[in-house]
């Protein structure tokens, strides 16, 4: 079986991607567009998604993810192979990159003012991210905020937005022109799909931004918008819970998070009205900050 080798230029990193699964290759093209290239000088990571060998080729076929020779995950059903590749690339960054403090958070910005949305799965973070990204906000990241140590600066790591379950239909209705991957059904997160952010976010994928606020989102069916400002201690604890590599980088991670929390306000919001959220963010965090 022939394997395709291509490269993803996703500043600040570059990936060599190898796959022998045709729909993975076509999804890459659909989602990454011109970021997918045929040659690159200096790939940082060498990832591959391959069909599992043996009888599993024919019976409930599976896919395996490799980062070079390392296999960090159990094999998954082959129809989930593309999602697996996206998660595998996240794994590469989260487990190797130690020169940023990495937070599990979406990052959206107006100009160079960024808001972080750290949140556990199920909080509606990705739906909010997708909506904002297609309504005039710039997406810096869907899953990982890369913070420069001892600063408030976030380095963009633009990647597709991972939407789950009900939000898949919602997003398809909202953005009929969007570049969607195929659906990976029945994963540990439910059904998932990856949506490419608008071209403008891709265009600015090397421009850093300054954090001006942290918002912990909670989607709540019966609430238009409730906003609670957190104390700095509360904000810190929630922030640190979402940090990937903070235990490894030690002191630098701790003091960077303390420093960010000291300088910007943090809020917990409960909402069902996305434009009300956008309005609040603009007034309270973007226009209010200097």
């Amino acid at each position: 079986m022939s394997s395709s080798v291509q490269y993803l230029l996703l500043p600040p990193f570059c990936f060599e991607v190898k796959t022998d699964i045709p729909f993975v290759a076509s999804n890459l093209k659909q989602v990454y567009g011109p970021r997918l290239i045929d040659s690159a000088e200096c790939p940082d990571y060498f990832v591959s998604v391959q069909k599992a060998e043996g009888i599993r080729k024919f019976y409930r076929p599976q896919a395996r993810f490799f980062s070079d020779q390392q296999e960090p995950f159990q094999p998954l059903q082959q129809q989930q192979a593309y999602a697996m590749l996206e998660w595998g690339m996240n794994w590469c960054v989260a487990s190797h990159e130690m020169q940023y403090v990495i937070i599990h958070a979406a990052v959206l910005a107006k100009g160079n003012k960024a808001i972080l949305f750290p949140a556990p799965p199920g909080s509606g973070k990705s739906t909010l991210t997708a909506w904002l990204a297609f309504h005039g906000w710039r997406l810096l990241s869907d899953e990982m905020a890369l913070i420069q140590p001892h600063s408030r600066q976030v380095t963009p790591f633009v990647r597709p937005i991972c939407l789950k379950n009900n939000s898949i239909q919602l997003a398809k209705a909202w953005f009929p022109e969007g570049n969607f991957s195929t659906v990976a059904s029945d994963t540990h997160k439910g059904d998932v799909i990856h949506l490419s952010p608008p071209e403008s976010s891709w265009q600015q994928h090397t421009e850093p931004a300054e954090i001006v606020g942290i918002v912990f989102p909670n989607y709540k069916v019966d609430t238009t918008l409730d906003i609670y400002q957190l104390t700095k201690t509360q904000g810190f604890m929630q922030f640190a819970t979402n940090a990937f590599n903070y235990g490894v980088i030690g002191t630098q991670g701790f003091s960077t998070l303390c420093n960010v929390i000291e300088q910007v306000p943090s809020f917990e919001i409960f909402y069902n009205d996305l434009s009300a959220v956008s309005e609040f963010l603009l007034q309270e965090l973007i226009d209010g900050s200097c």
Binding site: A52, E53, G54, I55, R56, K57, Q62, R64, F73, Q74, P75, L76, Q77, D186, T187, H188
Partner: peptide, 15 residues
């Protein structure tokens, strides 16, 4: 057996 059935056969599928 691993060669025949694939490594994954011996590992629980994670979901």
């Amino acid at each position: 057996l691993v060669a025949l059935l694939g490594k994954s056969y011996f590992e629980p599928e994670r979901r």
